[in-house]
Amino acid sequence: MDPPAQIPCSGNCLVHLHSFSGHAWLLRRICPFLQYPGPLGIPHFLITQTNNQAILLSHIEIITLHFLLKKATIEGLGLPARHIVAILPASSNTTHFQTQLSAGASGAAMRILFFMARPVLAASYYQSLTPGHRTVLVFELGVEIFEVSLLTEDENLKVKAAVSDLGCPLFNFMASELPRCIGIDITGDASGLLRIREACERAKNALCLGSGTADVMFERLGSKVSMQINREWLVWLNLNHLHRGIMRCLMEGGVRREAVHEIVLAGASTNIPEVRQVLRQCFRRQPFRCDIDPENIVELSAMQYVNDVSARYNIPLFGLRLFNFGLYSI
């Protein structure tokens, strides 16, 4: 009898906890090494299209290309794709990025009417448990995102601090240790960094499928080095990474943990008991807002918001979830 087929991990597990967000973090770091000089000094990037032809595009042109792909998908469902609400992580919802997204959308004959931060949507779905002013920590952890946000509310919810740019802890460790073992510096070596990331993911896959240990191997300039890891150590590393994100967000927001009134959970991975234990160790008394399945809370709130705005202005609207958009996703 043939052995049972190995089912690939969905990414929603303690081993792969930071794989996707870590990859997005790495792409942001190596993009400056991959750019080419373009007209008027505007950096261009080599993009491989679906027909395997490579072209040089600016950042805005890449965003436009991404919007065109989204537009084709929406219109293929028979829905209008003219006016949209952009739903962003709080850490990406900056004026600079909003300007870039608006320019890219315009190139695709689309218009962004509103920008909404994901933690604001998550927190606004629940009525306040605290009369008057409240401080809310939104902890979102899913396959595609890890973000800790601190919100305050008097009349409206406002983002006070947001932390998401932490990368993958296994990659961070290996990118420091492996090159040091063979005496080379790969700080500006995009190819070397990507190889370490691939080696880390291969080791994670082996541990996720049941191996007791796994080797992270790296070879560069004729030298080869390997480090062995086990599942227990990797899970500890991943969970400690969550704690670091929480404490950094509180520090950047200038808020003591005792001053947080409630914790809103978002993202499928917040249903993992070990993840909730990390949160409970940080916030022993605060209530966890998770009556609605955290996996669906942002989408439900976004749907409600888009429908309300569409009815108020009497125009068809479509909500687009934008994680690592444009340059970092194609």
Rank of each mutant, 00 (worst) to 15 (best):
W233G: 05
D185E: 08
A162I: 07
V225D: 08
T270C: 02
R248K: 15
L237F: 08
L137P: 08
H133R: 14
E299P: 10
P80Y: 03
C249W: 00
N240M: 07
I87S: 04
E153L: 12
W233L: 10
S329W: 06
M303L: 14
G183C: 10
G76D: 01
T135H: 10
T73C: 11
R202S: 15
S226T: 15
C282N: 14
T95S: 13
Q286N: 09
C31F: 10
L56V: 02
R180N: 07
G107R: 00
H241T: 01
N52H: 13
I292A: 08
M227I: 15
L46F: 03
S124M: 03
I229S: 04
P43M: 01
G210N: 11
G11L: 02
E219T: 15
H66K: 02
Q49L: 15
N314V: 06
E299D: 15
D291S: 14
L17P: 00
A214F: 05
S106K: 13
F283I: 09
Q228H: 09
V306K: 11
H44K: 14
S19P: 04
Q281F: 09
A190K: 07
N240P: 05
R28C: 07
N51W: 08
L69E: 13
G167Y: 02
R284K: 12
D185S: 12
Q53C: 09
S102Y: 01
I63H: 00
Q49R: 15
R257L: 09
L101G: 04
T50K: 12
G183Y: 11
L320C: 11
V264I: 06
